[in-house]
Amino acid sequence: MVDPTCGPLCAFAGLPAIAGSGDGVVAKERDGLGIARITARDRQLAALERLVQRRFHLLLPKGARRTGCGEVSLAGVGPESWLMTCENAGNAFAIGLRDSLGGPATVVDLSDAYVMLRLAGAKVRETLAKLVPVDLHERSFQVDDVAQTVAEHMAVTLWRLGDLAGGEAVFEISVGRSLARSLHGAIRESAAEFGFVFEPA
């Protein structure tokens, strides 16, 4: 019998790894993340805040901001709602969170709902400007800012990580798993004039 948990699981498998010449944009697949949506229950925000701080040493970000500590990060995606991620934790992350935060919050596993690309390179802003109607200038979209927006009719979530040592900006963009190929294509074509490199997980 086939093991249902094996097989090619990469949503980007078989897609072109380069476009154009050069490495103006380098897209690296982020895989294995545990992703959960945390929503405060009615009148439980303060309790959730305390619990998150005690358990993860994190303050719930206010507004569309992101914060992280170690392997865990929290991104504000709506009023009293956050997307929480944990490196290499997969579906087990949400199961664990349900136990720890399930009192004051609803926890929903979305580890498979999104695919995520980490975007870096000298031309990452020029490329994203072709895709999202959001001002990504360093003063307008600061490190740890979060934007849920639209890229070529696809709902995307975008955040900015800390700059690389050379000052180069780094973003992560995620989209519904079913749209992995469409997003890859949109980024690849937008970045082709600068040179696009894709690194699978």
Partner: peptide, 17 residues
């Protein structure tokens, strides 16, 4: 229902079985 990334392998498992 299985987590989406296992959907493909679940179909293959069902077909094989």
């Amino acid at each position: 229902a299985v987590p989406a990334r296992y959907g493909e392998s679940a179909v293959r498992a069902l077909m094989a079985a």
